[in-house]
Each structure stands twice: as structure tokens, then as C-alpha cells.
Simulated scan of single mutants.
Amino acid sequence: MAVARRIRRRGWMNAANKSNQTTTTEPRRPVVRHLAVRSRTAGSLAEAKAYVFHVEGTLVDTVLPSVNCWLQTLAEFGQVFRTADVHRFHGMDSEDLLDRLLPEGAARENKEFILAKYRSRWATEVLPTLRAFPGVRELIGELVARGAKIALVSTGGAEEVAHYRTLLGVDDLVEVVVSGEDVARGMPHPDLIAAALDKLGIRQPGDALLVGHSPYDAEAAHAAHMRSVGMLTGLFARADLVNAGSQSVFLDAKSLRQALATPEVAA
């Protein structure tokens, strides 16, 4: 009887150990607590009637320069953050970003001064150093050749957007450009997207596709009742973009163009 009990005990221990090993080795999907999972409307990526591109971070490499600009500016006002703290809210409307970062009280009272300093530093020190991502013109040219309409949206002012257009060299392919001066709010509010669709003459948001780089682009598209795809050029995790509502996620403009040429991916 004692031997039988030892055998049964060893069997239970072995079974428990195997169960624990299975639990610890099973891969886990990352949990993005600050983003809700969105319902996604199915549809072909290659057959949208219009494509709306968020310029910053998607077509022009602005993410790390912008984060560094925020860090320097905030430090001047006694607010010290880590790169990850600021990047977490990158792509969000500037005022919303500061509301998330700054503590209540005196820091928020300085918000307008912080915004003014950031914009001044961005225009004079950062903007001249920016570069467009490779493959942007080829991607947009391919979409236009398929008969699609193209819109560019940016939170920047007129002069900033003019600089981006010079970098991109796609004015002959683009029908509509919407800047931050045309709307009251940036992402994740749908204002920029709604203005672009209106100017394009798109009455059914489901006929258009937003191409963005941050979870806040995907959330804005969701609010506008349209589909979106994400680019890893924003340096967010793929899970962040998917959980925010991106139908698909691509490395960059080149990989999106390649995917559009592959029926099983584009569908």
C-alpha cells in the first residue's frame, strides 16, 4: 500500500510538473491595457477607392525626432520623462499628449508655453533635418495607377506641410492635402480624416483606407467608420496597432506595396 501511494504521489507530481511546464512555455500575446480591441471591417486592401496617409511617422521619419524634441522642451520646464513615456502618446494631438503627461496644477498652467516652445524648436531645429521614408512615391504611384484617390493629412501648419510635400515629391499624385490649420483636433479624433474624405468626395467611409503609424491613427479611423492599416515606422509594437483596430500591419511603404501585389495578402 505504501509503495502504491508513493507511485500515485509521483504520478501526480509528474503531471503537475508537466502542467506547469506547459503553462510557462506557452507563448503569451502581449496585453495592451491602454488600448481597446476594435471590431474590424473586412475588405480588400487593394480595392479601396481612396487612401488617406498620415504624413508624420508614416511617410516622413518624424517619430524619434519628435519624441526628442518633446523631451528637451519639457525638461526646460522642469518636467523630466523617459523616451518611452513620451513615445507612448506619440501620434496623439499635442494638447492631448500634454494632458496625459503633465501632472495637475502648475505644470498644466504652463501648457501653452510648452506647446509654443515645442513648435518653435520643431520648426527651427528639427524640421530641416527630416527625411522621407524610401518607397513612398512608388507606393502612391501604384495606388493611383489602380484608379485610387490619394489624400495626405498632417497635424502641422501650412509651412510645415509645404516642407513635407517638398520632401515627398508626390504633389502630382495627390488630390487632397489637409493640415492642422484646417481642423480643430488631431488624432485620435477623426477630424483630419473626415475633412480629407469630404474633400475627396467620398461619402461612404468604408470605401477609403487610412494608412497610419500609431494606435491613435487606428482609433481615429475607427471613429470615422473606416478601415486602417498600420506601419511599424511609428516604432509601436504590432500588437498595439492591431489591438487599436489596424486591419493589417506592414513594415513600411515598400512592404505595403509588395503586399498589394499579392492577392492573398491584399484581400
Rank of each mutant, 00 (worst) to 15 (best):
M1A: 14
A2S: 10
I7K: 08
I7L: 06
R10K: 07
G11R: 10
W12Q: 10
A15V: 08
A15C: 05
A16R: 14
A16S: 02
N17T: 09
K18E: 10
S19K: 13
S19R: 13
N20I: 14
T24Y: 14
P27D: 14
P30C: 14
V32Q: 05
H34C: 01
L35R: 01
A36K: 15
V37W: 06
A42C: 04
Y51G: 07
H54Q: 07
G57A: 03
T58F: 01
V60C: 08
D61K: 11
T62E: 08
L64A: 11
P65E: 15
V67A: 05
N68E: 15
Q72G: 01
L74T: 08
F77N: 10
F77H: 15
F81E: 03
F81M: 03
R82S: 02
T83A: 10
H87Y: 12
F89K: 12
M92C: 02
D93H: 06
D99T: 07
L101C: 03
L102D: 07
P103D: 13
E104V: 11
A106I: 06
N110S: 09
N110P: 03
K111W: 09
E112K: 14
F113V: 04
F113H: 09
S120Y: 05
W122G: 01
E125D: 15
V126Q: 04
A132Q: 03
V136W: 00
V136K: 03
E138D: 05
I140A: 12
G147L: 05
A148F: 04
K149R: 15
I150C: 06
A151Y: 01
L152R: 08
L152M: 10
S154Q: 03
E159H: 02
V161Y: 11
H163A: 06
Y164A: 12
T166M: 11
D171P: 01
V178W: 13
A184D: 13
A184V: 10
P188A: 13
H189V: 08
P190I: 08
D191A: 04
L192I: 07
I193V: 11
K199M: 10
I202D: 09
Q204F: 02
P205A: 14
L209R: 03
V211S: 05
G212N: 13
P215W: 14
D217I: 05
D217Y: 06
E219Y: 00
A220C: 15
A221V: 05
A223E: 09
H225I: 03
M226C: 14
G234W: 09
D240A: 09
D240Y: 00
G245D: 06
Q247N: 14
S248W: 11
V249E: 02
L251D: 07
L256K: 08
L256T: 04
A261S: 07
T262N: 09
P263C: 03
A267M: 02
A267I: 02
